[in-house]
Design a protein around this nucleic acid. Structure first.
Lengths: 407, 407
DNA sequence: TATTCTTTATTTAGTCCTGAACAAAGAGGT
DNA sequence: ACCTCTTTGTTCAGGACTAAATAAAGAATA
């Protein structure tokens, strides 16, 4: 319950770096206010960071009625991070700079059910890292569709991948000798939203993804809620009907079994909207072409999603719901059912909850995973544990040599 | 994001008091471990607290292989707190000692819809306080059925009471010149569970109340989740059907409109199980007497509750669900529907989630409210804001005179 | 132009807390 | 009886952080 001050300096140092990465250059006074520390401390800390080559002083910013601020910026060569998205049939990689911008990306076929998954993934990852830039690699973030017990441990359970207690984190860490942070992919996305997206302006929000599956990342007071065993946000398995299609989890009537991509395609085929070999893109094309049945399928899905999210909004009281995922490509069609269902199911005081739908890119999942690494400096509660400490150490150590601190 | 160390001493001092209140006497070494501070600091802090008359050294506890521990205990006369439960037609008061044990209680008729609510409540509260013991009154905790914007502010919105932005906290504080902490009643109960109940052993749990309404208190990492505007836990208004009875919130198909006390009674009357003038106790009596229709009504309610809670468990991943409230008197009958519905709706990895049903007393709501005051010392994140600080000050100030600290 | 105000940054003295060394007090084995 | 081990509690030097005073640098105003 009490506050542990031991790791404060480290946390504050890297909070500065993360803030600059997420929000761009800022003055010492800005930083002190943003991180809620005294200006005096900020002077001290930034002096060290500048001496170590991680920060540099930029131009003076024009005065706003007082002494003009000397802006501080990140030295962009101070580090990079790699993000990995793992799904059943392929893995995607991205490399990002310390400020979160994407440098390069790649995608490789992959069989998550192979007995050699861990060796395969290690190999692919090693190859991708090898082709990287010269900036020191701070760590690897891995996003998986499933629950991750302790992040520091990286034990993965995933029905989608067919994994049960797979020691992904420990293995990669040993093989690559780098900090590795494993996290549920939607939670990773929530962290990315918090750092770089709409979530910057909110402390309490919900990230909902639609696509193959349906998931949620929950941010409460600025921190991702992981639950007792990293299993929060499994909203795809919220029961929405007593009977219903069989879900991949073995139950009947889960939300995902109604509005997951597979279900939409199945229904569309059944109703003859698309051919037996066609997929979700054909259904979207049909809806785009104003096919009444196709738009109805999306609208029905939107209705069910809206009604379910109303329940979650009542439970958690977020400021905003951010919708993401491959499925947002057809959001226009979802929204006809979604908006009325959501609003009419909310109690009056909650009816105005904001909803944002963001554009989706192929690399978004992997970029979210990379954010895991770049977010660890923010991690005042030390959720990332040892791996977070290692990332911080790498960030500082690599810069020290060029500093010449010794007298 | 960074850690603010200013209020640490205060927080640590009162964390000691709260820990002793919640867990009974403990040694300095125990306290240092429990609060995650150094033994050195514990020595210092307890020295001060003993000198101020808030703590006293008890007998040595028998050695367990090393130097025997000198136990420390609270001076029980160091403070008391008053808890208030507000509902539409009456208010209930309790006075508790600093260790959370109930000293006395009272209940008064009350009209929440009167134009003079605030004056009425102030008067009743003043009368109750006047009859109290001699120990210094640390503050007043008030539990209301509705959402409370900022606790420090105490602005209440409640459909059940017909209140809209009622400045309950500010008014009581001004009139009584005491720290006042206003909170949603289920959240207050969750705090009480965390301090004194089953929740002591868990960091992530759900408190669900059934009775007139249906509500939830959510505890994440040991802290009550309040949402963006204190409106979390309104699970009574989760939509469970597209059509359904009209709910007090104006929507159709809310969970509460199916399994709230009023609904159960309405259905029972409609099916001729109980007389048109009879209430919930008659329905329970019928079920106790093995009336098939009566047991079915409870079982159906249990089914719906179980299915809905499965969704919340998927969303939040708690370790345990604690069921409380007036409705638990008939839990035996609920459980026939509840258990199968809950388990069969959960994904395999979550199927073992624990469920605890606690015995319910009339004073429980008010005792939960009193816990608001006694929990403020625990409040390292300073959620209670100014009022929390005031409680701490009163706890320390009142003891100072008898200490003779001045040299 | 001189004065006042506002905002930024640094220095200084002092507080809170920790780690490490040490003292205290018993259990358990020889 | 004596030594070793374990656990509790205290003392002390030092680090992290703050508040307050001060300096710096320009805007606003008269």
């Amino acid at each position: 319950m009490a506050i542990r001050p031991q790791a404060r300096t480290d946390v504050n140092r890297s909070a500065i770096l993360a803030h600059l990465g997420a929000h761009g250059p800022a003055s010492r006074a800005d930083l002190a206010r943003a991180l809620a520390v005294s200006p005096a401390l900020m002077t001290q800390l930034t002096k060290d960071l500048i001496a170590e080559g991680l920060l540099l002083e930029l131009e003076h910013s024009p005065s706003q009625g007082g002494r003009p601020a000397r802006m501080l910026g990140l030295v962009s060569t101070a580090g990079r991070a790699v993000g990995v998205k793992v799904v059943a049939d392929h893995v995607a990689f991205v490399e990002v700079g310390i400020d979160g911008t994407m440098v390069r990306s790649a995608s490789e076929p992959f069989d998550a059910s192979a007995s050699t998954v861990l060796a395969d993934l290690t190999m692919l990852l090693r190859r991708f890292i090898g082709g990287g830039g010269s900036a020191p690699l701070l760590g690897i973030g891995v996003g998986v569709p499933g629950s991750v017990d302790r992040q520091g441990n990286g034990l993965v359970d995933s029905t989608q991948l067919g994994w049960h207690q797979v020691p992904l984190g420990a293995t990669l860490r040993r093989e690559l000798a780098l900090p590795v942070i494993v996290e549920n992919n939607v939670n990773a996305l929530a962290i990315a939203e918090r750092l770089y997206g709409v979530g910057r302006q909110y402390e309490n929000f919900l990230v909902v993804t639609i696509g193959t599956g349906v998931g949620a990342g929950i941010v409460v007071d600025g921190v991702v809620l992981r639950g007792s065993a990293g299993g929060s946000g499994e909203i795809g398995h919220i029961p929405v009907a007593d009977d219903g299609p069989l879900c991949s989890c073995g139950n009947h009537g889960c939300l995902e079994s109604f509005i997951g991509e597979a279900s939409l395609v199945r229904v569309a085929r059944g109703r003859g909207v698309i051919g037996q070999q066609s997929g979700i893109s054909a259904l979207r094309a049909a809806a785009d072409a104003d096919d009444a049945e196709a738009t109805r399928i999306f609208s029905e899905a939107g209705h069910l999603l809206g009604r379910t999210l109303a329940g979650i909004v009542h439970t958690l009281d977020p400021e905003i719901v951010i919708v993401l995922g491959e499925g947002t490509a057809a959001w226009k069609h979802w929204s006809y059912g979604f908006e009325p269902a959501l609003r009419s199911s909310l109690i009056p005081s909650r009816r105005g909850v904001a909803v944002a739908v963001e554009t989706w890119q192929d690399e978004s999942w992997a970029q979210g995973a990379a954010a895991l690494v770049l977010a660890t400096p923010f991690d005042a509660d030390d959720v990332a544990g040892d791996q977070g400490r290692l990332v911080r150490e790498r960030l500082v150590e690599q810069a020290a040599p060029q500093a010449g601190l010794e007298p």
